[in-house]
Design a protein around this nucleic acid. Structure first.
Length: 426
RNA sequence: GGAGAGAUGUCCGAGAGGUCGAAGGAGACGGACUCGAAAUCCGUUGUAGUACAUCCGUAUUACCGAGGGUUCGAAUCCCUCUCUCUCCGCCA
């Protein structure tokens, strides 16, 4: 969440930001509730002070009459206080719920616009690959090579689940290890994280665990959810912690399964592995000083580039438009790799995403550091995809396909796979 | 899953319903002593709010795992939950 003390001092900015993001948040109502809350808090605290004062008068020995009078006064105070507290709790719950709906500020250079197509492509790497034959999409390739099985996935787990088979299993593990080696080389501490997290952690990271629009699977009756990304578990790692400034930046990378409901996500652009209910992902995460977050955002982006240029894939980098940013994100860059089987003639499809969430998540999760002046301040938190295995596999299968239906292995992965081509097994 | 023990500040650890935001250590920081250091001695040392002052501040509220309850008054008594440890069961 943002700093609620700024609701009035940065009113115009917040209002415009909500507009730029095409969100529906009634700032004026929130501010009115904030004022109601503050007034009630004042009353409550005043009553508590009176109660404490009354109680401390009764410490020593008193004659019975004085004591009885004080007790009577205390009882009266207690009743008034209870009703005021009830009023306060009500408005407090409403207000803190509302305050969480206010999105993070946006980087001044982020392109303003409503949707995907308003995002700005800021860099292109390699030309999209040209094929001397009509390239297949990964679903067809996967079936023909017997390395991907959506039908059995649907039968056993439901629509949009899949089995990975044969050499593709090895390729996925190779990709995991390839990406892990690069990220660790850059000083990230490797983790394998839980695939489940508590709702309060989800909410602190900025995910909505409940409701129709939620993309999250909740585990009924447990207060926990399946994670949609290791961003959740890596970001929750230091909840309620005061970090040493000397330890910053903290670089972590976490491998997890990712579960997403993706309700209504079917269609041409979601086919096959591109949009699924479960996949594996290696995520990067950085906790850092506020003044350094933009620098580390670039660092994460450059590692993502290192991973995808290493794979020999054509891609572009997109500076995400305001309307397409998640509420916690201050700025977001996506890498979109060329996918020859996507659309009619091939298209770019998102393979990574890195967000600078500034102090938005840190404030909700209460993650701080002690500064040189002794003050305790919120850290900045950044996340970025090292590799989302399912999407990387889409790009590799479609770009590295051969006319005979086999798939070559990107040279950097061969040391990890132990073979250089996937062909139909007999 | 069952039985027992526990959870207090940066750490260890004490804590009768009122004198407790919390003893005593340790650590850290500042100072004294010293050519310097160690040792010793002295001092300081939580967080988040709120109201006035906005220059050091003054007053006040909350926080002793979390949430409820009892009471004029709760770190302390009661209930529920979470986590940790020991033992049993089950298991990779």
């Amino acid at each position: 969440m943002i700093d609620i003390k700024e609701l009035k001092t940065r009113y115009e900015e917040i209002k415009k930001n909500i507009q730029d993001r095409y969100m529906n948040v009634d700032l004026d109502k929130i501010i009115a509730d904030q004022e109601k809350r503050a007034a009630l808090l004042l009353e409550v605290e005043d009553l508590r002070a009176k109660r404490n004062e009354n109680a401390s008068k009764m410490k020593g020995k008193l004659d019975p009459e004085t004591r009885q009078a004080l007790i009577a006064e205390g009882k009266a105070l207690k009743e008034t206080l209870a009703s005021k507290e009830a009023e306060f709790n009500e408005i407090d719950a409403v207000f803190s719920q509302e305050a969480r709906t206010i999105p993070n500020y946006v980087h001044p250079d982020a392109p303003v616009g409503k949707e995907d197509k308003d995002s700005l492509a800021i860099k292109f790497h390699l030309e999209p690959k040209k094929f001397p034959f009509k390239p297949k999409d990964h679903v067809q390739l996967g079936e023909e090579l017997d390395i991907l099985d959506f039908d059995s996935g649907a039968k056993v787990a439901g629509q949009k689940f899949y089995y990975i088979k044969n050499q593709l299993v090895i390729l996925q593990m190779a990709l995991e290890r390839y990406a892990m080696d690069i990220v660790v080389k850059h000083g990230f501490t490797p983790f394998i994280t839980p695939d489940i997290a508590k709702e309060e952690i989800l909410a602190g990271i900025g995910f909505n665990p409940r409701g129709e629009e939620s993309n999250i699977y909740t585990l009924e009756g447990t207060g926990t959810c399946l994670v949609g990304t290791a961003e959740i578990t890596l970001g929750g790692y230091y909840q309620n912690t005061i970090l040493d400034k000397a330890d910053l930046p903290i670089r972590m990378t976490g491998l997890s399964h990712c579960f997403r409901r993706e309700a209504g996500g079917a269609g041409q652009y979601s086919k096959g592995l591109y949009r699924v209910h479960q996949f594996s992902k290696l995520e990067m995460f950085i906790y850092c000083l506020p003044e350094e977050s933009e620098k580390y955002h670039q660092e994460i982006l450059s590692i993502e580039e290192e991973i995808f240029s290493g794979l020999g894939l054509a891609y572009r980098i997109v500076d995400t438009a305001t309307g397409d940013l998640g509420a916690p994100a201050y700025r977001k860059f996506d890498i979109e790799a060329w996918m020859p089987g996507r659309g009619e003639e091939g298209e770019y499809g998102e393979v990574t995403s890195t967000s600078n969430c500034t102090d938005y998540q840190a404030r909700s999760l209460n993650i701080r550091y002690r500064d040189d002046d002794g003050k305790i301040r919120f850290v900045h938190m950044l996340n970025g995809t090292a590799v989302a295995l399912s999407r990387a596999i889409v790009a590799i299968m479609e770009n590295y396909q051969n006319e005979d239906g086999s798939i070559s292995i990107p040279p950097v992965l061969v040391p990890y796979t132990g073979f250089d081509k996937i062909t139909k097994r007999k």
